[in-house]
Design a protein around this nucleic acid. Structure first.
Lengths: 120, 120
DNA sequence: CCTTAGTATGAATAAGTGTTCATATATTCA
DNA sequence: TGAATATATGAACACTTATTCATACTAAGG
């Protein structure tokens, strides 16, 4: 088949591998998603949550962050659909929303660790 | 440095799945990596490069960006080790540095598309 | 050499972002 | 009801960052 025939939009996203073809709106969402991962506090929160659900206070204590800062970042993660809250009395427990989240973390970690070991 | 860098906490990064245990420095690098992906211009450049190497001018034209903006972003991608330049005369062709890059893109895209289809 | 094409870079500006502080909301218990 | 605890939110600040403009660099051709 002709793969290089379309100068307009063709070659750029024939499909990243073999799955679905991403359009501009998908790439916008993709960048927004990665923007959420692009902060150490949020990454640490997410990694902490890979060990199971945690309450806000526990997160703040463990990550040595202010409670307000943690809450703010949890909201960002919530709005991005990455974490899910569960209320129990006065306490709110947060958990990863689905397994995609840890998959994304792992894809990045693999790259990071691979680069690190490769350079030294 | 950290006032309370106590590694005895343990539960946070027992290992994300089954691979290597990420430390604080890894998570810093991870956030920095995602920060690079967290911009639509850069994502579009990377996605364009999944179709093979492209020169700067071609990228600028295709993405409807200024040549300077593309160059600036290519430098960010280069410094992050995500793309690799190859000079041929006056033209510089850029390509993805390794297959990890498209894997990371795919992991995010899967999530994005899944969310999109799931909500409606 | 000079000119031209392709790319890179520095400075400036505008827009965005994470944290802190103060305060508000929500829930439990006395 | 009122106090205490857990979390959320708004505003302000410092800081980062993506783009544009102008210019410098690099290679090819005359």
């Amino acid at each position: 088949m002709d793969k290089n025939a379309n100068p307009e939009k063709g070659h750029i996203c024939e499909s990243i591998n073999n799955s679905v073809k991403p359009d501009l709106s998908d790439l916008y969402d993709l960048a927004e998603l990665y923007k959420v991962f692009g902060d150490m506090s949020r990454v640490r929160i997410l990694v902490a949550l890979t060990g199971g659900e945690r309450c806000v206070y526990h997160l703040a204590e463990h990550l040595e962050m202010g409670q307000s800062a943690v809450s703010h970042q949890l909201r960002v993660l919530r709005n991005a659909g990455l974490v899910r809250p569960r209320r129990e009395g006065r306490t709110v427990y947060y958990a990863l929303d689905d397994e995609h989240v840890s998959e994304i973390l792992e894809a990045g970690l693999e790259h990071v660790i691979h680069k690190k070991r490769g350079v030294q």
